[in-house]
Every structure is written in C-alpha cells, then in structure tokens.
Design a binder for these strands. Structure first.
Length: 686
RNA sequence: GCCGCCUUAGCUCAGUCGGCAGAGCGAUUCACUCGUAAUGAAUAGGUCUGGGGUUCGAUUCCCCAAGGCGGCUCCA
C-alpha cells in the first residue's frame, strides 16, 4: 500500500490531512505506519509522495511499539503513586519492556500489585499518545525536574542508534509524547521519547504483566548510580500472554540446575565454594562420554595431547600479559617459600603462585621447549585444561558461569601463510563435532576490539587479524553478527553461536587469532630457508568449557539424552521376581557389549518401576515375563510409552548397540532401525 | 562487586500474629510377585543456613555473615 496523495493541505485550513489513520484506520490491528522506512504514529500527517505501509500490532515492529507504550503506562503509574520518582529510560526489549526509576526505596512485590492496578486504570482510560516536536530549550524546561532526561537531552546525537537510550532521543528531532485525556484533551503525563506509540492506551488490552524488579546502573556503567528497574512483558492479547508465560515455564522445567539435582548429575556443595561443582556418578558418565568422544575426534584431526599444572609462578603470567590485562579475573596469589628469621627479616625471598585462568601460557612453554621446524607446523596442542577464574559473586550461574572449569582448549601454532587455511579447517572441525553432539543450527559472531584500553597489541596487527577472521567467517556462508568490543585482550575472535531445541542461542566455540603471545614468549621456528620465523597462534575452545557445554546439552535435550550420552542406557524390569534371573542374563550380555545397564530388582511393582525410570529418561526399558522367557525374547518400552514386544535377545542387543554406535536419539519405537526379524512387532500405543 | 528477594527433613513445600515443628515424594523394614507411568503398612529422618542481639522464652522480630535466585556490570 502506498500513500500518494498529491494535494497536501495547507496547515490550519481544517482540511482532511493524510495520516496513517486515514489510510489504514479501518483495520484495528494497525497501530502505526512505516513511512519511507521509518516508523510513524498513526495520526502523524504523511507528506505527499511518501510511501506508507501499515504496521500491525502482531508484527515485530508492532510488538515493540506496544511494549514501549506499555512502558510509558508503567512510568505514568509510578509517578502517580510516587511523584518523587525520577525517570530513567524505558525501552522495549525481547518479549517485553522495562523502565528505570530513581526512587528512595526499591519497589516491593506489593508495589508491583499497586502499580498494576494503576496501569489498568490508565489503560482503560484510553489516553491518547500525542507527539510533539520540541526545541532543546523547551525540552529542558519541560523536564527541569528530571535530571536523567536532562542528561539524555545533552547527549542527543551522541547516543548510538542501537543503544537503549536511543529510544528516548534518537537521531532527528527531539520529541515529547504526552498522554492526554480522551475527553478533555488535558495533558496527564509526558515523557521525552522518540516514539512512535500506539494511538491510545486502550489499544494495550490485558495481555501484559509486570514480571520482576531489579537494579540497573544508569546508562549501563557501574560508575553511575543504580536505578530501580521494573521489567514487564506485553502481548496483543491475554491468550498470547498466557502462551508466553507457558513458554517461560517450559524453559524453567529444563533448567540444568533443576535437572542436575533431579537426575543426580552434579551439585555445588557450599562447603567447597561458589561456582565450584562436583559431578556425581551419573553426571560423570555423561561428562566422560562427552570428553572421550572429543578426544577421539581430536586424535583423528591431527591434534597432539598435552597436560599442564593448575598452578604456576607469577612470572609466567607476567610474560603472557595476564597479570597486566586479566588480573581482575584471577584468584589472588599464594605467597610461598618465604622464610623469616626471629627478628622478622626476610631471609629467603618468597614467590607468588597463581591458579591458572587460561592454558595458553603453559602450551607456549611446551612449544618453546625445543627448537621447532616449519615441517612441524601446524602444531596443534590440545588439553582438557582446568582453569580457575575469580568471577564476581553476582555473575555465577549454575554450570554456565563458574569459578572452576575445564576448557577443551587447543592452541594451534601456524606459519603466516597457513593462517587462513588452518582457520577454515578449524571451523569445519568445530561444526562437524558440534553436529555429532546434536547441535546443528549455527551462526557466527565476530568479536573485535574497540578503543577501550583493555586490549593489548598494536592497531595494525589487530586490523590484519580481524580482516583474516572476517574473510574466513564469510566463506562459511553462515550469518555473521558483529560484536565490537567483545574480543579477548590479545586478539579478535570468531565465536560459533548455536540454537538449541527451544530456539535459544548459546555462544559455544571460539576461535581467536593471536599475534601477541608468540611475541611475548619469543616463539619461533626455522623456515625452509634457514631463517627464524615467528608462528601465529590460534586459540580454540570447542565446548568453551566442558561444564557449560554439559549444561547446554542438558537443557537442549531436557534431560533426555541420546543413547550414547545417557548415564543409564538400559534398565531391566522383570514382570515378577521369578524372571529376574532370565533378565539378568540378557543384561549381562549387554554389559559385555559395553552398554550401561541396570536391573531394577526392587520391591516396587512393575508399573512403578516403569514410571520411575521413565522420569529418569532412560532410553530403553527392557521388560521380561513369562512370554519373553519362553520365546528367548525381551520387550522394549521407550520414553514416550511406545513398546516393541517379544524381540529376540540377539536382535535386541543389535538394536541397542546400533543406536549407541550411531549416536541415535531414541524417544519412541520408530526411532530404532527397523528390525528385520519375524518376532519384531512394533506397537504404537501411548 | 552492586540492588532486590529467598534459605524449615535427602527433594518439593506447609506452618508458628514469639510458647518444646508438619505433609507429599524419597530412604529403610515388612507383607504382596504383579505384563507396560505411583500396592499397602510401619519406621527412621530437622540445634527451622550460621553467628550475634531483643525477650521469661526466637525457627518466627532486629543486625551481621554465608549460600541461592532475578537483574546490572562482566564473561567460557
């Protein structure tokens, strides 16, 4: 649709002007117009010749407008209840919105209830949103009592388009949105805002909810004061709100912290310390499978396996630059070996030892342990290296953010002219392996430096490295998202982001280019012409950390792992005690074939056993009773309740070992390779 | 690290307006021997996260600490 009204009326003549409303007003789903690419309020006059399209409330832009307008309603409610509250910013975010306030005391759950009531009143009043362009002077006068708004006015133009602050003062005119009474036209409340907004608060309906309160630093810097932030969610209808809340609940059900406790996989004993996990036997099995398979693949991929200690003298981290650039992330040193005489004088100088936060310096020493030839390159050193980082207490989160972790860390030393090929090879290696673990939906992120002083090395080297990474990333054909300022202190990186089963994305593998460490360690090799050359170093973690990857897989599969990763692959359930011996014989044969089996010989009834092990997500329940024993067979029950009864034992063993070897996910009878034998009858009852 | 909230049995949670603590699941024992998601009964299990304070008396009120959760900042 396009608006091409040739007769733009003169202002003040009382003639009908063209607006989004005159064009699309019939359709109540339309809440704004997109005019020559920009989002406009529905009542804003559209100039002749402009191209205008409708924006419906259910579209991504429409939802953002809805959420943004709901944030304004929240802010109005807050200032009605507490006129002393000063306004921060209130942008839409994924699935919702927030608004920051400077208030004397934080919001309580009771406050949220009162605010929700007030918001309902505002929503039902159907206040119109009115846009007005103001000069900077007018704005300063209007918001004289709002120090944060004044700061934003001063920032105008300086705020990056992508920042949350740009929602208040974007490029273009300074604008104010007033909420006016539908009948009297009286201005009830107003906010500095670039808009656009819904036509009126009545469009909001009842598909919103305030979700939580939190503190947030003003403009995202911990040097600034903390404001109180209220988060909310908003949808076009109550039904969509309910669907959203349902999705949130489903995600909570697969939270790895919850599943880790329920399935007896790991724990964080208080006695050990925050962010330090122990893996229980069942979690240990999964972890060992993850690691063992990774080792196999690295072996085939031409990696050499190395080991290094967890602790080292300070000197090593001075050489590597960690103490200069990364000290905040390291545990404080242990001062050892100092001797003091009776007078208190030091008679022997002590040494500082640090827990290692990264493995690279150790691997550099391995590289440097003897002369290297160009014939050895690329040299790929791999280690499951445990590292310790002193993360701030507030940032720890389950296994995804810990203080002690094991990286599947590799350092690749290559000649300059091998860099590109090795990067490409490494990325492909990464994709292949991740697919084997069941993740196959990727995009890439290119993390580069910004002008922050936290980055080491000179600009030229950074540019070269960044350009090379960008080139390699582009050649994968995958979507590439820029991440300025996200680089490691020693170099830029590509990270592989994976989408999980419910569409969340996780940063997994990182591939980092490093020209700095080889210099610091004076690494070199002898080239074909006999000259000494400096290798380039590539840092590569595939899982990132084993613990975090474990958590991601646990959430991805919601605890129901593919057979090869399942801690218990088969549980045998005799119909009655009498059949336990027969079943035990079958299980022995499976165990001999390398399958992880258990016999449930407890006093529980068979139905109870089925329930218990189904809740544990065991992929194969093997049931044996009179009929099976007579036939030399076994009966399968799968996670979803489907069954395959009377399968000859030999065939059953083949099906199970086959599923493991093929890394199959088995949730239902049909997931198994079709059985050829005559005794195979797949029942589909749930 | 900062802000808010939370911490009662192995787990999930009731509860006490300040007066010697309760359920379900789980565990143990006994009976039952059963054909595809919970058999029944009995028993054990808690210095109510830790330390101070107020009080005749604190699991309950106050302060501090630890741990957890949600955010901010930071990051694998």
């Amino acid at each position: 649709m396009s608006a091409t009204d040739p007769t733009v009326p003169q202002p003040g003549e009382g003639v009908q002007v063209t607006t989004g409303r005159t064009l699309f007003g019939e359709d109540r789903e339309v809440v704004a117009a997109r005019v020559d690419g920009a989002l406009w309020d529905l009542d804003r006059p559209i100039p002749a010749g402009a191209h205008a399209e409708p924006v419906t409330i259910g579209s991504p832009d429409g939802l953002s407008i809805l959420r943004h307008s709901t944030a304004h309603v929240l802010a109005q409610a807050v200032q009605r209840i507490n006129p002393e509250a000063r306004l921060g910013i209130g942008p839409p975010v994924t699935d919702g919105f927030y608004y920051d306030f400077d208030v004397a005391s934080p919001f309580t759950p009771e406050d949220l209830k009162a605010l929700s009531k007030e918001m309902e009143r505002i929503q039902r009043a159907g206040q119109r949103f009115e846009r007005r362009v103001v000069t900077e002077e007018e704005a300063r006068e209007l918001f004289a009592a709002e120090p944060y708004k004044l700061e934003l006015i001063g920032l105008k133009g300086g705020a990056a388009e992508s920042s949350d602050e740009a929602v208040e003062v974007g490029a273009g005119d300074l604008t104010v949105y007033a909420n006016v009474d539908r009948q009297t036209g009286e201005v009830i409340w107003q906010d500095l805002c670039r808009g656009p907004h819904l036509p009126n608060t009545g469009v909001i309906k009842n598909g919103w909810a305030l979700t939580r309160v939190a503190a947030a630093y003003w403009r995202g810097s911990e040097k600034n004061p903390q404001l109180q932030r209220i988060y909310g969610t908003a949808w076009p209808s109550k039904d969509e709100l309910r669907e959203y809340q349902h999705r949130v609940e489903e995600a909570a059900k697969r939270d790895h912290r919850k599943l880790g406790a329920e399935l007896d996989l790991f724990s964080f004993p208080d006695e050990i310390g925050s962010g330090l996990a122990v893996f229980h036997p069942k979690g240990g099995v999964i972890r060992r499978q993850m690691e063992d398979y990774s080792r196999e693949r690295h072996e085939v991929g031409g990696y050499s396996f190395v080991w290094s200690p967890h602790i080292t003298k300070a000197n090593l981290f001075q050489t590597s630059g960690h103490l200069q650039w990364f000290a905040d992330g390291m545990f404080p040193p242990m001062h050892l070996d100092e001797e003091v005489n009776a007078e208190g004088d030091v008679t022997r100088q002590g040494q500082d030892y640090y827990l290692k936060p990264m493995n690279c310096p150790m691997h550099n020493l391995i590289y440097r342990s003897r002369g290297r030839s160009y014939r050895e390159l690329p040299l790929r050193l791999f280690e499951f290296g445990s590292v310790y980082r002193y993360e701030k207490s507030g940032t720890l989160a389950g296994l995804t953010r810990v203080r002690g972790m094991t990286q599947d860390d590799a350092h690749l030393y290559v000649a300059q002219d091998q860099v590109k090929e090795e990067l490409t090879r490494t990325l492909n290696f990464v994709f292949d392996l991740l697919r084997d673990y069941g993740l196959d939906d990727f995009y890439l992120e290119l993390s580069t430096r910004d002008d922050s002083p936290k980055f080491a090395g000179n600009d030229e080297i950074w540019e070269t490295a960044t350009a090379t990474l960008a080139e390699v990333a582009a050649e994968t054909g995958l979507e590439l998202v820029p991440d300025p300022g996200g680089a490691a202190f020693y170099g830029p990186k590509i990270s592989v982001q994976a989408r999980d089963a419910i569409g969340r994305t996780w940063q997994l593998s990182t591939v980092q280019l490093d020209f700095d460490q080889p210099n610091r360690f004076g690494l070199e090799y002898t080239a074909a012409d006999g000259t000494k050359q400096r290798p380039v170093m590539i840092h590569r973690a595939l899982f990132g950390s084993v613990e975090r990857f474990f958590a991601i897989l646990l959430e991805h599969y919601a605890g129901a792992f593919p057979v090869w990763l399942s801690p218990v692959q088969v549980v045998g359930i005799p119909v009655a005690d009498e059949y336990a011996d027969y079943l035990s014989g079958v299980l022995d044969r499976l165990r001999a074939a390398g399958v992880r089996v258990e016999l449930d010989a407890s006093d529980d009834r068979m139905q109870k056993k089925i329930r218990t092990h189904t809740l544990e997500h065991v992929p194969f329940l093997l049931i044996a009773g009179e009929k099976d024993r007579d036939a030399g067979a076994i009966s399968f029950r799968f996670r979803d309740g489907t069954t395959r009864n009377g399968v000859p034992v030999e065939e059953a063993i083949g099906l199970i070992t086959g599923a493991i070897a093929q890394k199959l996910q088995v949730g239902t009878a049909d997931d198994l390779e079709p059985a050829g034998g005559a005794g195979a009858a797949a029942a589909g009852a749930v």
